[in-house]
Design a protein around this nucleic acid. Structure first.
Lengths: 181, 181
DNA sequence: GTCTATATAATGATAGAC
DNA sequence: GTCTATCATTATATAGAC
C-alpha cells in the first residue's frame, strides 16, 4: 500500500463523510490499516491526511486540467475533453465536492482553508481560460467560470440529497451551453 | 428562552460548523444553556435539534417563500421580493447552505435526509413557479429552478472558502437575469 | 426549566513489540 | 511498515437536586 493509493482512498472517504464526520476508525476500515499504521504514514493524523488529499487535488488540476485547456484543440473539443475528465473525477456525481466537505469548520483560518482556496482559484482559472477561448470578454469569462463552478458544486449537493445522478448530468449539460452560447 | 429562539441559534450554529462538526459543548456555549437543559428541550439530542431546524426551515418556505410567488405582483416584483428575502435568510452569504451542511454523512437513509429532500423540492417549486410567471416553458422552468438553486449553494461554498461576500452578491445578480432573459 | 455531577462510548493519538 | 494495547480527551447522554 503506497501513499498514492492511500490518498485515493482517503479522498473517497472524505467526500463521502466530510472532514468532521470521518473518523480514524472508518479510515482504518476503508484502508485495512490499523490506526498506528495510519499515524506512521501521516504523523499529524487526520489533519495531515486532509492536507495531502488537497495537495493531491491541486496537483491534479495542474497536471490534468490545465493541459486540456492549453492544448491545440478547438474550444468545443477542449470543453468536451474537460467535462469528460471532470465527470470521471466526480464519479458521475456519486460523491460530494471535496471543497465543500473540507471547508465546513470552526476555525477561522487554518491550513486546510489555504489549500482549498488554491484549488478553487486554480479550477476557476481553468474554466476562465476556456471561456476566453470561446470568445468571451474578460468580464463574461470571469462570471461564467464562477457560475460554472457553482453549478458543479450545487448539482453535487442536490444529487447527494435526492440520490439521483441525472441531476448532475443534466446540469453539466447546462454548463456546456454556458460556454457555447 | 423559548423553543423558537433556541432553533434560531441552532440553525446558525449548524450552518457555521456543520452537523458532524457541531458539538453539544458548542451549542451549550452558544445558547447559554447547560447540556442537561438542552436535553430537556430536545430529548433525542443533536439529531432532534437538527430535525427541528429542518422542520422550521421547511415551514419557513411554506409561510414566507410560497406567498411571495403566489402574490398578485408582476414577475419582476416577485423576483426582487424573493431575492431580498433569501438574502436576509442567508445573512448575505455569511454562513453555509443548511441543506449542504446537513446532508454530508455516513448513514445511507435517515430522517434528516427525508426532511432535506422536502426542503429541496419545495424550494425548487418556488423557483419553478416564478420561472413560469416569467413565461418559461415547463422544461425551461424546471431547468432554471434547479440551476438557480445550484448557484445559490455553490456561491455560498465559494463565499465560505474565499471569505468574500461579493461572490454571493454577484452570483445572485446572475440568477436574477436567468429568470428575466 | 436549569443546574452539578457523572456515566458511557467514541474520538484522536502514542508506546513499544515484531 | 504493521500490529496490539493503551492513553488522554472529548463526545453524547443521563440522574437527580433545586
Amino acid at each position: 500500500m503506497n501513499k498514492n493509493e492511500l490518498i485515493q482512498i482517503l479522498m473517497t472517504e472524505f467526500r463521502k463523510t466530510g472532514y468532521e464526520g470521518l473518523s480514524l476508525s472508518q479510515i482504518s476500515k476503508a484502508t485495512g490499516l490499523g490506526k498506528a499504521s495510519l499515524y506512521h504514514h501521516f504523523p499529524n493524523g487526520k489533519k495531515e491526511m486532509a492536507l495531502e488529499v488537497l495537495k493531491f487535488t491541486n496537483n491534479w488540476i495542474q497536471t490534468e486540467l490545465y493541459p486540456i485547456v492549453n492544448k491545440d484543440l478547438s474550444p468545443n473539443e477542449k470543453l468536451n475533453n474537460l467535462i469528460q475528465t471532470l465527470n470521471e473525477f466526480y464519479f458521475k456525481g456519486e460523491n460530494s465536492c471535496l471543497l465543500d466537505v473540507m471547508s465546513i469548520e470552526n476555525s477561522s483560518e487554518n491550513e486546510l482553508n489555504i489549500h482549498s482556496k488554491e484549488i478553487l482559484l486554480n479550477f476557476t482559472n481553468v474554466l476562465n481560460k476556456l471561456a476566453k477561448d470561446f470568445g468571451k470578454s474578460n468580464e463574461e469569462a470571469s462570471m461564467i467560470s464562477q457560475i460554472a463552478l457553482s453549478i458543479f458544486q450545487g448539482a453535487l449537493i442536490q444529487t447527494r440529497i435526492l440520490k439521483d445522478k441525472n441531476i448532475f448530468q443534466s446540469q453539466v449539460s447546462y454548463v456546456k451551453n454556458l460556454f457555447k452560447i
